[in-house]
Each structure stands twice: as C-alpha cells, then as structure tokens.
Simulated scan of single mutants.
Amino acid sequence: MSLLTKFLFPPSLFVTATALVSFTPLAISGLSEIRGKHLQYSKFFGVGSQTSAESKIKLSSRAAMVTLYTPAFLAGVFSFAIFPDEGLRFVLLRSAITIHFFKRIFESFFVHKYSGEMATDSMVAILLSYFISSALMIFSQHLTVGLPEPTIDLMYPGILLFSIGISGNFYHHCLLSKLRCKGAKEYKIPKGGLFDFVTCPHYLFEVLVFWGFAFISQTLNSFSSALGTTFYLMGRSYATRRWYLSKFEDFPEKVKAMIPFVF
C-alpha cells in the first residue's frame, strides 16, 4: 500500500468501491468478447447474440455512435461549471476527457463510414460505461482537492500518453474510413500504419488515451477505469482478429490482435 501511495492519491471507501464498479463490468465484457458473446455493433452485429438480429431494436450506426459518446462529453463540459478552480491537474483531466469524447463525436459525424446498425441495448451499455467512468473520474478528482500530492508525479507523462493516444487513434480511424467508397458496406483487410502489425491499432491508442487519463489524474478510480478498458479492448481485438481470420483466407497470421509482436 505504501508503494501505491507514491503513485496515487489516498483512496476513500467511496473511491475504492466505485473503482470496482468501473473495472468489473469492463473486464467481464472483455472476457465475453473472447468467448464469442459480443456487443452488437459493427461486424459483430447479430454474431454471438442470444437473440436474433431481427428481433433487436436497432439504430443507424451513425446515430447510435453520436448518442453513446455525448453524455461523457457533456460530463466533461459541465464539470468546468460544477467544479471551478480546483487546480491544474483537475483542469487537465477534464480537458482531456472533453477533448477525447468531442473527437469521437466529430469522427462519428465526419470520419467513420458505416456498414450497418447498432442494437440499442449495446448502445446503452457502452453509453453508460463511458458516462459513468468519466463522471467517476471527474468526481474522484474533485475529492482529492486539499490532499497531499503523490510522491511520484505522473501528470506530464500522462499528457504525453494522452496526446499519443488521441493522435494515433484518429490517424487509424482515418485509415479505416479510406477502406470504403461512399455507400460501400463490404469489409476489407486494413493496411497502413500499425495495421501491418496488429488488427486493432485504434484500440491500442484508445487504451493509451485512458492510461493518459490515469496518469494525469493519479486516482484509484482512473487507474481501474484504464485497466478495465484495457481488458475490454484486448478481448474485442482478439475477437476481431478471429473474425478476420475466418472471413479472409489471405489474412496474415503474423498480425497480432492489439499489441505488436505480443498479443
């Protein structure tokens, strides 16, 4: 515990409990993805579902993606009014959260090209995950006001991690969008950037964004959110690689799921 306090603000009972709330569903979801039970969107719509795709309530992918990112974006925006003037670390954390989810909304409108629909239950599950984790990170940071700073300051490395993550995520989303002509819905093997090494480099950089949040914040809650996101996206990337292998005979075996040369 003394080692942890060098990196983290002292966690309260509330922060410890909500950290488990942030971590557990994400980790379980990642395991479910590996086992073939997928959240119903993108290429996995109707795959591994207990109910048929036809029986699900669906939204267009564009509308669903914009909807699921908006509450987390608004949590970041309104936090500036609710918790004003609480120090540089707090400003950087909520700025990073707001910028990240604004980027995702922007991409949903102007970058992504969609092949289908999203089940509303999956949309709600992702919406709640992003909103709750963002709100808890922000509130947990508010609870650190007046506490002594951790001995080891990770704030500036966190800014670097966040910057690399958000830039890499955007770049690889742009590469994905170029795979399809307007109106086309077929899937192709992605190429360029880190796609030559892993199936889901956009997930890798998304993970770096959340570890950027964690390093900037240095609360138990933000670290549990980053760890849970890592487990979920590792599971999702593993399932995505398995899907590509099943659909494309020429998919290169050497391409890993999310971490080059490792996983």
Rank of each mutant, 00 (worst) to 15 (best):
K185A: 11
H38R: 01
A257E: 03
K6E: 15
S115R: 14
V262Y: 08
V255P: 02
F90D: 07
Y203R: 02
Y156T: 09
A53G: 02
M65C: 13
T70Y: 14
M137T: 07
F210D: 01
Y244L: 05
A81N: 14
E253C: 00
K103T: 12
I138P: 00
G30H: 04
G76D: 07
Y130R: 00
M118Y: 03
P157A: 04
I166R: 04
G235L: 12
V91P: 00
G87T: 05
Y203I: 00
A214R: 00
K103E: 13
Y41W: 10
F131T: 10
P71T: 09
R35S: 15
A53I: 01
F195D: 01
G158H: 00
S133R: 09
I57T: 14
S217F: 03
I132K: 04
K113Q: 06
S32N: 15
P148C: 02
Y187V: 01
S115F: 09
G183R: 06
Y156S: 06
V15M: 15
S122C: 08
I105K: 03
T219E: 05
M137Y: 06
E86K: 15
D121M: 06
S115Y: 06
K182T: 15
F73W: 15
F263P: 07
F83G: 00
P252N: 10
H202W: 04
M137K: 01
A81M: 15
A72R: 01
T51W: 08
E117Q: 13
K185P: 07
H142C: 01
N221S: 14
S61V: 04
K103F: 12
F261D: 06
E249Y: 11
D153H: 11
S222V: 01
R89D: 07
S122Q: 02
V15D: 14
R241G: 01
F109Q: 05
P252Q: 04
P260N: 11
F195I: 07
Y114N: 11
T51G: 09
F106Y: 15
L143R: 15
F9N: 01
M234N: 05
P190E: 04
K256F: 10
T199V: 03
A226H: 02
D153P: 07
F223T: 08
I164Q: 00
S225E: 05
S122F: 03
S79C: 11
Q218Y: 09
G183Q: 10
K56H: 01
I105P: 00
M65I: 09
L204C: 05
T24K: 14
T199N: 03
L92R: 00
R242P: 11
K43W: 01
E249I: 12
Y156A: 09
Y156E: 12
D153F: 05
F215S: 01
V262M: 11
L88Q: 13
